[in-house]
Design a protein around this nucleic acid. Structure first.
Lengths: 118, 118
DNA sequence: TATACCGGTTTACTAAAGTATACCTACTCA
DNA sequence: TGAGTAGGTATACTTTAGTAAACCGGTATA
């Protein structure tokens, strides 16, 4: 009835890395941004156009977060006027499988929901 | 420079299922609850003890959400007093791979962070 | 009688996430 | 000269997520 210490610690051990991942990927925009960048490097306004509904503030903030975590690299080109390009780092690309699984599950879920349909 | 319509629609097409998945799994407690249940069926207070920091209100609410989405099944036993058991449905168990990938990535990320160490 | 367990709900609150709008410099095009 | 682009920042606001604490009926234990 009472969880055994073993259960509890195993649960925690399994949970921690999942939480770590979600800290980085959580929120409304992180994955949309990452996914947008899997289609190629992009500039700020370009991303804003491509990701429906995101505001400049959020895009700016989220890109910073992703940069800090080294998933995204920001390059400023010394053109006139400056242009800024964002790209996925190798590390960012390592999320590929995670995103793939989420996508697969989401697709299947959508199919299920639609089949019981309203 | 301007995203091609193709890019944009491909991006959306890839994003939607991921969003669907995150709608269901998002928030602080959904995955902790699901992971706790992968270690076996559990009762309410038992889960509350096992999941560090969750309040009764959140546990109750999140379990309802998961039940609605058919990831978790709630069974009331007609004992005196009633006992209530929660279990993962087959559908809930289908998240196994998603969670596995998140966990793998999170573990590797943690290792990376620790190695640059503060 | 008092205390504690079970499975929650209710109320009130705070904190975090996200939005809307305006604004900034520097540049180009007509 | 005015409008539009790029790459943002600042301010103020709303909405949502989450917390803390009290409470409920019923049962059991001492």
């Amino acid at each position: 009835m009472t969880p055994t210490p073993k259960d509890h610690s195993e649960c925690t051990r399994n949970l921690l890395p999942v939480k770590d991942a979600l800290d980085i990927l959580g929120g409304k925009w992180k994955l949309p941004i990452i996914i947008a960048l899997t289609f190629g490097n992009k500039r700020f306004k370009e991303m804003q156009r491509e990701i429906n509904g995101i505001t400049a503030k959020m895009l700016s903030k989220e890109l910073k977060d992703l940069e800090v975590n080294q998933l995204v690299k920001r390059t400023v080109y010394d053109t006139v006027p400056v242009s800024v390009e964002y790209e996925l780092t190798t590390y960012g690309k390592s999320l590929h499988k995670v995103i793939g699984e989420l996508r697969t599950w989401g697709l299947q879920h959508r199919k299920k929901v639609l089949s019981k349909a309203e």
